[in-house]
Simulated assay, not measured.
Amino acid sequence: MNKVILCGRLTRDPDVRYSQGETATAVARYTLAVDRRFARRDQQDAQTADFISIIAFGKAGEFAEKYLKKGTKVIVTGRIQTGSYTNMDGRKVYTTDVVAEDQEFAESKNTHSEPMPVPVSVPQSGYVAPPSASAPGFMNIPDYDELPFN
């Protein structure tokens, strides 16, 4: 079985091209930065992410062109595909790519555009003060003297 599931951020906008022929097919290529779960202790300055080449064909390529951009966090499900070609120097170059079968957003659209709410600290007494109306992400709710139910 050849199945890959990755979660990471696009390092650049997808490069989308269309195949020649009777029915043009979208081919999107982009790189996904996937954080490593653990860093080695002896390599403090070592790279903490892997940069995986992704290829999306057809409808998946069109989706990438329309919705994905640099910095977008996505979950990609697909398969590993290896290949090779001879470069201009006459040397054989081996490639490894993930062919995307499914692409999903891994966070909401506004995650980075809105500031995070200010965390409320818990004093030792256990009482938690309500957030102020000016805190981002909260709205001011007026006090009511009478409730419409008992």
Rank of each mutant, 00 (worst) to 15 (best):
V4Y: 05
I5P: 00
I5H: 07
C7T: 15
P14N: 04
P14H: 01
D15A: 14
V16Q: 07
V16E: 00
Y18T: 05
S19W: 03
S19P: 03
Q20F: 01
Q20I: 01
G21E: 02
T23H: 09
T23F: 04
T23Q: 12
A24K: 11
A28I: 04
R29V: 03
Y30R: 07
T31N: 07
L32V: 04
V34T: 02
V34H: 00
D35P: 13
R37S: 11
R41E: 14
Q43P: 00
Q44D: 10
D45L: 12
D45E: 14
A46G: 09
Q47Y: 01
T48W: 00
F51P: 07
I55Y: 03
I55T: 15
I55V: 15
G58M: 08
K59H: 10
G61M: 02
G61Q: 04
A64I: 06
K66F: 03
K66N: 14
L68N: 03
L68T: 05
K70Y: 03
V74A: 05
G78C: 01
R79H: 08
Q81M: 12
T82V: 11
T82A: 11
S84P: 03
T86W: 03
T86L: 07
N87I: 08
N87Q: 04
N87S: 06
M88V: 12
M88F: 01
D89F: 12
R91G: 03
T95H: 12
T95E: 11
D97A: 12
D97T: 14
D97C: 09
A100M: 00
A100W: 00
D102R: 12
D102S: 13
Q103N: 13
Q103F: 10
E104S: 05
A106Q: 03
E107Q: 14
K109F: 15
T111V: 12
H112P: 01
H112R: 14
E114Q: 13
P115G: 10
P115Q: 11
M116V: 13
V118R: 09
V118H: 07
V120N: 09
V120E: 12
V122S: 05
Q124G: 05
A129I: 00
A129G: 00
P130E: 11
P131K: 09
A133R: 07
A133Q: 04
S134Y: 07
A135H: 02
A135L: 02
P136K: 05
G137N: 09
N140Y: 12
N140G: 02
I141C: 04
I141M: 10
P142G: 06
Y144N: 11
E146A: 11
L147N: 05
L147T: 08
L147V: 09
